[in-house]
Design a protein around this nucleic acid. Sequence first.
DNA 1: TTTAGCACTCTGTTCCCCCGAGTGCTAAAG
DNA 2: CTTTAGCACTCGGGGGAACAGAGTGCTAAA
Lengths: 350, 350
Amino acid sequence: MELTARKKQILKVVTERYIDAAEPVGSKFIAQAMGGNLSSATIRNELADLTELGYLEQPHTSAGRIPSPKGYRLYVNELMERRSVSDQEAAAISQALGGRMRELDSVIAQAGQLVSSIVSYPAYAAAVGKGGVTIRRFDLLPVDTGSFIAVVMTADSRVKSRLLRTDLPVEAEQLSALANLLNTHFTETGPEGMGEKLMALTGQLPPELFMPLSLAVEYAGEVMDRSARNQVFTTGQTQLLLQPEFQDPGRANELMRLLTDQKAELPVLDENTPMQILIGPENVNEALKDASVVVASYDIGENMRGLIGVVGPTRMDYAAVAARLSYFAESLTKMFGKSNQLPPKEENKS
Amino acid sequence: MELTARKKQILKVVTERYIDAAEPVGSKFIAQAMGGNLSSATIRNELADLTELGYLEQPHTSAGRIPSPKGYRLYVNELMERRSVSDQEAAAISQALGGRMRELDSVIAQAGQLVSSIVSYPAYAAAVGKGGVTIRRFDLLPVDTGSFIAVVMTADSRVKSRLLRTDLPVEAEQLSALANLLNTHFTETGPEGMGEKLMALTGQLPPELFMPLSLAVEYAGEVMDRSARNQVFTTGQTQLLLQPEFQDPGRANELMRLLTDQKAELPVLDENTPMQILIGPENVNEALKDASVVVASYDIGENMRGLIGVVGPTRMDYAAVAARLSYFAESLTKMFGKSNQLPPKEENKS
DNA sequence: TTTAGCACTCTGTTCCCCCGAGTGCTAAAG
DNA sequence: CTTTAGCACTCGGGGGAACAGAGTGCTAAA
């Protein structure tokens, strides 16, 4: 059986109507929507074919049709009109991005919030490094005799710091010596390398120096670890509860759990793919089996990518979401490309 | 009409049974629970009185009784047996707190998570300063000619840092001079004071120094601002959806919104109150009018308090939650009291 | 003051019926 | 071969009616 142009046209009507009204679509409506040149009986024949081909489903014998995941897939791949964002939307997005956003983590989190508010579905955002992160530079600042501040800068130019406490007093000069040591031996290497180096130094240093050193190294490890398993921010979870398909608390709960407790399980985009749409069972994660995800990526500097995704019912408005999301991702890429360019890698100065 | 001991006893039975079973309690059950010495008819008379007095409510004419907010209040104030945590629970809490928790913000967030998992309700956590926060110390670390790292330490010993970029190149010596300037003129003052100082310096400094200075000051202002309007962490929101009273998506949604988007609206504890229970309409916030909140505070160093609260249905198990929460708060106070003591205030060294 | 007895009220459930929407099929028309 | 009109059929949802069960309130007696 062939998938004629007319069948596709019908599939398109069904899908869009269903996205809009959230209830099964009948032959009569379709006939009308297609110009009234065909009778509903003809449509019914076509519908039967489309159902047999697996593009449509029937909730029960005598209801209208709704798209199956396969149907949505075809819709998304071929039928959907690639919409572009309206001028107002574009303006709104640009304006929102125009605000001062400096800190990388907060840029990411805010991007998620923005997207969620724009598309009215929950959104998630993360940054993924293209490789493991290393520390580019250490600084140790004396506070008082029992404590000092460790400042580490990662290869991707995030800066993190923490107040560390030692049992034994340490002099300011000793700290700067330690910082030197750290910068010469503990940069540009992963956590394992650091561990080895630290081992090698055990016993070679007096204990009042070894302790702050190991504290600093431990902290560095934590920082690397935290940015390696990419932190995911989610927002707008409540939007889900407003969707008719998630009125059933059981179903809603599962997804809510994913969005709050198991953020790390949310789908990540393959490298080099600008945007991906995952429909229902195409999702690996069990909780997403009857939801859909649209996820896009943007570039942050040279070797990092930002990830931004939207979670909604399979019935979500793919055209609108995809358009907004990709516009958004492009804007972010542009933004990182110029004004907020990350500084080039450079030699360490102690 | 008097509130006899027997009436109170009945109120207690009703409340506890309702907390447990989530359905109206009938006279027969009560008669039995009270030893079987009284007939259900007698109980019914008492119930009628209690209802008239406003301690009980009837969902409909021929259902059992449930406690009114007033009834809960009496229960909490007088009837509830102050439970203490079991040894296992105490051990579990201690163990969880024993883990490495260093960074103040993450201690707070983790405390929230822990409480939520212990009581099976959503929880929130925050730290409130007893006054405005000031900056205790600045450090400026050179990165390359176009950028430097600003590290600020607040009076309450939180350390924050950020990479800042300048248009004009700045030398390392200039940076340390600037740091000196900052440490002498911009510490121990609020954002307004800083603004004035900065104004006063406008024009007195060459532009290549003024820009980094104002960037650092701006950043400091941001840090102060962020810790002033106390950040609230919430966790366990999904637990709500499991409660029978929040099966109605409308009601659930309102609360979810509060817990995710309007965290700042969550009730704060009066100073010097160790713990407070807010029942239903006692809450100011509209969304909490038929929910209850138990909130406790603990000490963090000299002039900060931590806040930790639990949100649940009015039917929540006050005895259990209160016991665990207060044990938890005490443990935290102890923890901050000894091992993790904040360093004393001290002179700035540049 | 307590209790037994009883009529009453209200909810939730089940069953039934019917309506309407929509289908699938057949047979005729184009 | 395609389209269409016609028609019987299916199924879910809505609207009672009937009913069981839980629980009450009241009365009158112990």
